[in-house]
Design a protein around this nucleic acid. Structure first.
Lengths: 163, 163
DNA sequence: TTTATAACAGACATATAAATCTGATATTAA
DNA sequence: TTAATATCAGATTTATATGTCTGTTATAAA
């Protein structure tokens, strides 16, 4: 199967985009997020843990615990999420799978692929979550069925858990 | 794991590039090619069969049988090989995995990804095997360790099988 | 016609990614 | 201090892609 992002990567992007809508340091539990995104809870939990290792989210244990974004939105790029989950391997590996493919002895598709790969990296690097959220907040709400009532409710619920 | 091409796709590209060096209607057996490319024979055979279904290669059974390119080099694009093996799905599917992602109700990354996807498609479409071979024949020979002696030998061997 | 050799077809096995489960640990409200 | 509830860690299961095996069919040389 030809793919770009792994399933893990997709779900990580979904989760972080979801958190970006709120972005107010309230902690959302893995259960909360998994229900909203319609994702298996345990799988999401593992993904969030990987993101926590890379400081993209912060985790808090215990009764009022959960996950919240670990950095300002303008410091999180899409590429950071991809790297946190799947690593940089894809940006180094030869398309054709030739182990001996190097700059000195490139495979027949080396140059063409190099351009493509650099472009993917550039596109994923140039935009931060801040820009994406500002541009797409309505889309994100829409695709996750977050209406204003639900938003207020969720936030007040989260905050109630805090005191 | 984030990938671009499946293993099958990689090997298909390798095999077709290999055939493009010769490109003289001689039939190479799956065993021949698998040894040269250092690929499992049975796995390659399956891949070549998929390529045969899409007329990218032609297969011939029996004693002097094997596989040869099914079209002129200038009529085979990289994208044709990708499609033959992995289909067009990747060029239609949403990056984030949202099933509801459409033009009318796009996901937050829809536009950005659309551009990238179109570009990948374009790059794989714009060049045919003819151009790649003409530009990279030495690279292909080098990476497969095809020296001139081996080339002449392989061709005469293939032709001997024919009469 | 016989024999050798190739693709072909489909079942089977293995490796890896995806998903689930169980129990331990940390945190906080009461 | 206790109970509730969250993450965390690792084993286990499931699904899918990858790789292997076995026997059949087609083709052509001898």
């Amino acid at each position: 199967m030809t793919v770009i992002f792994s399933k893990k990567c997709e779900l990580a992007l979904q989760a972080v985009l979801y958190l970006s809508v709120f972005n107010d340091k309230t902690y959302f539990t893995a259960t909360d997020i998994s229900k909203r995104l319609n994702i298996p809870k345990e799988f999401l939990a593992k993904i969030l843990q990987s993101l926590a290792v890379h400081s993209i989210v912060i985790s808090k244990k215990g009764k009022t615990g959960g996950f919240t974004l670990g950095k300002p939105l303008n410091e999180i790029r899409l590429i950071d999420i991809v790297i946190a989950i799947d690593g940089l391997e894809i940006f180094h590996k030869c398309v054709l799978g030739f182990k001996g493919c190097t700059v000195e002895k490139p495979c027949p598709l080396h140059e063409k692929w190099g351009k493509l790969r650099d472009l993917v990296y550039k596109m994923l690097s140039e935009e931060t979550l801040l820009e994406i959220r500002d541009k797409s907040v309505e889309k994100i709400k829409s695709i996750h069925s977050i209406n204003n009532d639900a938003l207020v409710l969720a936030q007040s619920f989260q905050k109630r858990r805090l005191n």
